[in-house]
Nucleic acid binder design. Structure first.
Lengths: 243, 243
DNA sequence: CGGAATGTTGATGGTCCTCAATTCAAGTGG
DNA sequence: CCACTTGAATTGAGGACCATCAACATTCCG
């Protein structure tokens, strides 16, 4: 379940070097981090951290995708965050977290002992600054999601979700009809969007029937009409961009 | 609308001194902040910042309550944050914000020129560290709210809201039947909870009929049965506390 | 091949939104 | 002080949207 990986990647060659919590670090600081870090891998479906469990390490996601989720007594579940490579898990100054962290696909983490890392945060402005930026970015994302959860219709939620995936997978270029991997199950998508899995399935079918998207198989789709998709999200054409 | 206030409060005597972004600053740093700061006041209902507007200053809330909200093209509105004294407005490294900031009651801000403040953040670890903590606290709050918006019923939302107010107004002691001020209109509460104002009104009436709360007038209520209220929130009895 | 997990589709009902009428509270001006 | 106005809150009726329950199809994997 929790397989410590030995592959000793050099920080300087790390794929998340320029975006993770270490992004602003200079060579000396990087050397220090290098001496502290350990890698851990988790298989798809594994729980990385349980809510309330004492937090012994903090970590950066090196590869894979993990989700943060909260569950109520009666089983209702809501995802409250999505962690992609370079995102940070855990928070200095707190001994536990208030949600579960789960690997949705195979995940590799770059881990640091929490106590030692906290000390480092206090002594290394570059890390505190970057951690602040990461937290503020996540806060922006969380706020967008609050609008979705509180006010959008099922169809708008699904369209927003698809548009997000499309934006993320098309790497800069607007190549429209690439095949996009859904990664998650209908149930996970439902928990992400505050819906039931049946509603998710129905809305996918509806968007397909309306020619907005097309499915190659159940986990892969293409965007057939990007303009229509944008329209369905309910968002402004411009996301608050200055002219 | 935007009344620059002249009252020159000394930082050392500031009511939010130990909790705001300046909390960790030493005397020298405080002196520097003191030379940069200006106060501004806003009346209840005033918009402090518009979405997309160039952000010329960042600020700490000294007194009052402000809300962050997002509005869709067709008018649907969702509050995405609540700012209380010591909370921070604006983010270094970004020239605009993606939501409106509105004063719900009279608000006084301690403002800093954005460009100068950003420079300060980079040079003053104590500020970056505190800003990081504030951002992480807000992130925790945002995630709790995402569970509410995505999964809770109208009744649970209202109960959670009331419980939050009760917890906040009873200052530490569990004095049960204090009169609690609602501050907001039904419409604002609805936008906070992802409901309509009619549903808010109906749920208030229902909780009153069931003897959980009692209204002294439309803006003031008392908690008659705290245990029942807790039960209605849908939250665990323990908020993930370690034993 | 068989069983489990996942996904689709249909029928039905409940929750909450929408629309509308009425009540209530707080001013305002004669 | 009392009509009049105005905005906020309450209450009711009806319906839309989405959840629930259920049956069935599909895919995955031993």
């Amino acid at each position: 379940m929790n397989i410590p990986l030995v592959a000793p990647i050099k920080c300087s060659q790390c794929p998340i070097r320029h975006r993770a919590v270490c992004a602003r670090c200079d060579d000396d600081e990087l050397l220090l981090l290098e001496s502290m870090k350990t890698y851990r891998s988790f298989a798809a479906g594994d729980v990385i951290l349980w809510r309330g469990e004492p937090l012994e390490f903090v970590a950066s996601v090196v590869s894979g995708v993990a989700t943060l989720s909260k569950t109520m007594e009666d089983g209702r579940t809501q995802m409250v965050g999505l962690l992609l490579p370079s995102d940070f898990i855990g928070r200095p100054g707190r001994e536990q977290i208030d949600f579960d962290v789960t690997a949705t696909v195979d995940v590799t983490l770059c881990c640091f002992d929490r106590a030692r890392f906290e000390k480092l945060v206090n002594e290394t402005p570059h890390i505190a600054q970057r951690l602040m930026e990461l937290a503020l970015d996540e806060l922006d994302a969380a706020r967008d999601w609050m609008l979705l959860l509180g006010r959008k219709t099922a169809r708008e939620k699904i369209a927003t979700f698809i548009e997000m995936l499309a934006r993320r997978s098309s790497h800069g270029l607007d190549g429209s009809s690439d095949v996009i991997d859904l990664h998650m199950t209908r149930d996970q998508i439902a928990n992400y969007l505050g819906l039931t899995l049946e509603t998710v399935s129905r809305q996918f079918s509806a968007l397909k029937k309306d020619g907005v998207i097309g499915f190659t198989d159940r986990k892969h789709f293409t965007v057939e009409d990007m303009a229509a998709l944008q329209e369905e999200t309910g968002d402004d054409a411009d996301g608050g961009v200055v002219y």
